[in-house]
Nucleic acid binder design. Structure first.
Lengths: 216, 216
DNA sequence: TTAATATACTGACTTTCAGTCATTTATTAT
DNA sequence: ATAATAAATGACTGAAAGTCAGTATATTAA
């Protein structure tokens, strides 16, 4: 009897429909200004039903963030595949992160939320845990790029891949967070193009990682 | 008649008392879990009075952040004064930022809030504007350290001080944000000490900035 | 076919809290 | 003393997250 299975599928579909609706509403109004009633209306469901599928507003928002992290992972994989050397892979991943921030700015905002709040990664916050896992997967692409760079000699052999990946992730996120939120302000105040800041950031990282003993 | 002046002084004192109370409450409970009624009680004032002194809850929190940025500026100045070369000054400023994050973690959390939210820097958000100005002052210490490094030859002459300062600020904030919020989690999951991540981050920055043509 | 059971959904209700404002209290000027 | 001004109050309002007793729909058993 496939009834239980069908029910499971329908439940999953409904769950995704709710996330779709939540994206529309949260992306249009911003998390703080959007209400669960707004989402319920967009999803053509009652508010109570939302809470059957998601523990609370934050969990729903984290479900959106998970989708963003999945997109980002794919972009990282593509970027790494395109590049030749390990160092170039790392650089290409950085560039793809930058593209993500531009093309999927709403998902990027969800990521800023995720990265700048104390999230409780416990059993009953399934979306938080899913974000954590997807984040690990996404980061692993960068770790592997660094490892390949050490192997092919383009990256200094004395860096620890995991630690370094965490540093690059944190640094890049920090830079793009500033440019995303305060970019206009920086432009007005200092006549500096935020994109230049991001370029410079990646340039500094490249210099810091490259193996000076690499034979060209 | 010094009555108006005395009134002004008393107003300023009361304002500071409110910020003191807000620090106690917000630092103990966190911004989201603290209420304006809590602050009012701690300040031994009615809630209405708080709104005579601060436009809203966010502005009050930003008043706290301004204090944090003032402390940070002093720490930057001290750090830079202690170091010899420009490059060392930059490194020392980074270290002092790290110390700030440890010693004043509550102020640092206020900074995370400030850096990760879309703040409206308009006329009638005086605390937001004050944060912006104080932020500029604090950043200027770093800009000057970079300039002195270019002058004394320890930092590559081809970096633009303001742009570079913004990059270092964003990168360092990003790293410390992660370590502050997800540090325990990183430690558990990867057996990596968050402090090592921060060390590595500063090491990479140093390598990226140093002038290879510097005669020792 | 119908009754019993299980599952999915609803929306009115509760609670909490930011922000307001008519009123009161305190201070200064006449 | 009294009027005028400034400072402070706290009950009230509106908004929104989250709950839950009740309704509707689908499935199974008799």
């Amino acid at each position: 009897m496939g009834i239980a299975e069908r029910r499971e599928r329908e439940k999953e579909r409904r769950r995704n429909e709710i996330i779709d609706a939540a994206e529309k509403v949260f992306f249009a109004k911003g998390l703080a200004n959007a209400t669960m009633d707004d989402v319920a209306e967009e999803a053509e469901l009652s508010k109570g039903t939302l809470y059957l599928y998601f523990k609370n507003k934050e969990e729903l928002y984290l479900a959106i963030n998970r989708r963003g992290l999945e997109i980002l992972e794919k972009m990282f994989i593509d970027a790494a595949a395109q590049a030749q050397s390990g160092l170039e892979k790392v650089y290409a991943i950085g560039q793809s992160y930058f593209r993500f921030q531009n093309q999927y700015s709403d998902y990027f905002n969800a990521m800023i939320y995720y990265e700048s709040h104390q999230i409780d990664f416990s059993e009953d916050n399934s979306c938080a845990m899913a974000c954590d896992q997807q984040g690990e997967k996404t980061l692993r692409v960068l770790v592997e790029a660094i490892e390949s760079g050490i192997k092919d000699g383009t990256i200094r052999p004395d860096v620890e891949p995991m630690k370094t990946a965490l540093v690059l992730w944190g640094q890049s996120t920090g830079i793009m967070q500033i440019c995303s939120l305060k970019g206009v302000h920086i432009e007005e105040e200092h006549n500096i193009n935020p994109d230049d800041i991001i370029d410079l950031s990646f340039d500094l990282i490249k210099r810091a990682l490259q193996n000076s003993k690499d034979k060209k």
